[in-house]
Each structure stands twice: as C-alpha cells, then as structure tokens.
Design a protein around this nucleic acid. Structure first.
Lengths: 211, 211
DNA sequence: ATTGGTTGGTGACAAATGTTACATAGAAAG
DNA sequence: CTTTCTATGTAACATTTGTCACCAACCAAT
C-alpha cells in the first residue's frame, strides 16, 4: 500500500502494519460509485481522505441521502454485509476526490479477535452508523422540508469547511427525496430572508444563516 | 436461569450453558418498558417469547415505531451501546406478554471471540437491524401514509398470526407518527373498500386485504 | 339509569408538499 | 453570434396531511 496514506486511525502498530500489507489504497473522483445496490460486497472501505455519501433507493428509483462518511470513518453496514455475504442495500458515491483503504473481507473477521483496537473501531462504527440512521429517520419523520434543507446545508458546510456550497437545486432535491421546484421555492424563501445568496450551481451561506 | 426457557437460538452447547448460567430470565407484561431514552444500557435482551417494539422519539415528544423484535431476535443497538457505554437513543416496550434473557454486558465482549456462533448471531443481528432501519427510512421517505398503514397492519398480522388486530386508532397514529383523525380517516376508506372491518379497539383484516 | 372517560366518525379548513407548465437566464458549443 | 442545453424562477393548481371542533357510540363504575 502507498505509504503516503497518512491516516488518522488509532490502531496499534501491529495492526497498522497489517493494514498496510493487506489493505489496498484506492482513489476515486467525484461521482465515482464505490458500492451499488444489489452488488456483493467483498471489501470494507476506510476513508482516508475526502467524503463519501451513502444513499438508499426505493423500487421506483427515488434516492435519499442517508449520511456522509469522512476521514477515518467507515461503513459498518459494509462490514456486516461482508461477513454475511449479503448484497448491498445502499449505494456509496465519492463526493469530490476520495481516497480509501479497501480491507479484504477475510481479514475483517480475523482482526476482530486479534486486535482490540480493531474491534473497538468496528463497534464504535456500528454505533455511529446506527446514530446516523436514527438521525435520518428523525429528520424525515418529524421535520418539515425547510428544516431538513437547512440541516442539509449545514452538513455540507461542515464537510467542506466553506460557506460556498456547490450543488444544483436538482441535486439537493434528489438527496432530500423531493422535487426540484420545491427546493427552488424553499431556497428562494431563505434568500428573501437574507440567510443565503443564490447563484447558478452555488449557494452562499451568509453570516446569519445559523441564526 | 429458568431451564424452561425453551429458546430457539442456534448456539453451541458450551455457549448455551453459559447463557443459562449468566443470563437472567425476565418476564414483562404489555406496556412494560424494557429500555428508555437516555438510560445507560447494561444488558442485552434476547427475546425468548413474545414481541418487543422499538421506538424513537424526537425532542418534541413525538414517537415513531422503528421495528419489532420477536422470538430469538435481539437488539444489536443495545449491543453496541453496551460496549460503548452510551445512552440509549431508543425506547423498547413489551407488546403483550414478553420473556427475555438479559445478558450482562461484560459477557457480550467475552463471548464474541470465544464462541463463533455468538459472533455470527451478533453480526447477523447487526445486519437485520440495519435492514429494518433502512426499511423504516424507505417507508417514511417514499410511501404515503395509506401504504404505510397497510404495511403496519400486515406486520401486526404477521407477528400475531391473526387477522384480528387489537389496537386503537390512537395507538396506531402514535406509532406511525401522525394524528388519530388521519388514521381514522384512512381506516374508514379501507373499510369502505371492503378490505377491513372496524370495531372498537379491533380491526379485522378481510381476505382480500392483501390484494 | 346516570355519569364520566375513552374511542371513533366526520365536516371544514389550514398547511405542506407535489405537479405541471412555461418563462428566463446563463453556460457551453458550434 | 447563434444555437443548444442546463439551471433557475414562478404561477397555478392538485393532493396529502394536519388541525380543530363537535358529536355519537361504547364501556365501566357508581
């Protein structure tokens, strides 16, 4: 594996060595598909750099955003999928440039009992994924679209570290599982309230956006 | 532990012995709370008999049904909560008479590497919980209330094995996170379409309910 | 039988979201 | 500069869901 992968995982040295031996560093560009519906999963991705978004689709082709994974996070759904040899129920797409370490599925199980730090990492990850899914459910079930839109923009800001969000109304509508017209309408209201400025393919969050 | 607990778990004999030694058989009645928001979790429940429903609440007190656990199932969210010493994000309530085996949290970790059948059980459980949460998200995000109501009634039928569902409109509304009036309205439409019959605290699913 | 609490039925209306249709603006390509 | 494509703005309307008000039916206790 490329030694330049300067990852922030808190593993014991012996495990890091194993990861460097058996893990495979892979790079992706914006929009690349790392995982897709119905495909068998044979590796588990550790995010080294960039962001990965995880989506769920229904039978009619509607997609909705579940959560983002960023540096040093992993998708524990992939983990349990690997062990059970199940097909993926979700899709994962690179958001911008992305680097991951792909851990082959046969190592996952081996390390679980061999390295406590690996077990802890996996368990923490399970917990985080559950939390994210619960947050997602809460958001969809209890919050109106305008709140969800604001939460979405905040998350984008957090991940990019910038007040300038690059996305079309259509993309946003997709990820929130609604229609473009509705998003345009809500964004326009936010603009009229002085919270944001709208440009083509860009949304600028103003200082009083959080207020 | 009470030896009469005739559970259907597929564990190796040595593990069953440990479960009988360290597990604690507990009985609950309808409505008893097994787990609650914000409480620390110190045991993991294996369902022996009956059904347990798992709910999520938002800040304003609205609750929504996440999924049911029935015989030989477990809540793996409890598992990861135990290990991480986190507070519960969900509430679990007995639905009718319920028997569980409570596994103390210190054994969970020990058994993971000691008994492959335990590890498999836990991993399968993680997978099932993820699936249920994803199903829940799909249902809320993509399906209208009438579809969700029908799915809810079907699930009730599956769990009880009966066409007669005992629940008030108010209870159903709660679990689907809507209001009583809305549920009454939709149920009445189903009745007018010859799918169900309505009684006080009871709903009878007719033969063409699934059609 | 009377009372009081719970449950269910229903009309009327409000609010949120979805849909359709069309106009305009900007970017990109020729 | 035109053409073409994509992104956005907006009106008008439909549908879905939520809310309020009130009544009637049912049940249990006195």
């Amino acid at each position: 594996m490329d030694e330049s992968a300067n990852f922030a995982f808190q593993f014991e040295p012996a495990l890091i060595e194993e990861i460097e031996t058996f893990g495979e560093l892979r790079s992706f560009k914006d929009g690349d598909i790392i995982m897709d519906y119905g495909k068998y999963i044979r590796m588990m991705p550790l995010v080294v750099k960039g962001t990965l978004k995880v989506l769920k689709k229904d039978d009619n082709g509607n997609e909705i955003l579940l959560y983002y994974l960023s540096s040093s996070e992993t998708c524990s759904m992939a983990y349990s999928c690997c062990l059970e040899e199940k097909k993926s129920e979700v899709k994962a797409i690179a958001e911008g440039d992305l680097q991951i370490i792909a851990i082959p599925h046969n190592k996952l199980d081996e390390w679980l009992c061999k390295y406590p730090s690996w077990k802890n990492y996996i368990m923490r990850s399970f917990n985080e994924r559950f939390s994210e899914l619960l947050k997602s459910i809460e958001s969809i079930a209890f919050h109106k679209l305008d709140d969800r839109l604001i939460a979405y923009l905040k998350e984008k800001k957090r991940l990019s570290g910038s007040n300038l969000i690059k996305a079309s109304h259509y993309q946003i509508a997709d990820e929130l599982a609604t229609s473009r017209v509705v998003i345009s309408r809500l964004l326009k209201i936010l603009e009229n309230n002085g919270k944001i400025l709208l440009y083509r393919n860009e949304i600028k969050l103003l200082n009083n956006f959080d207020a």
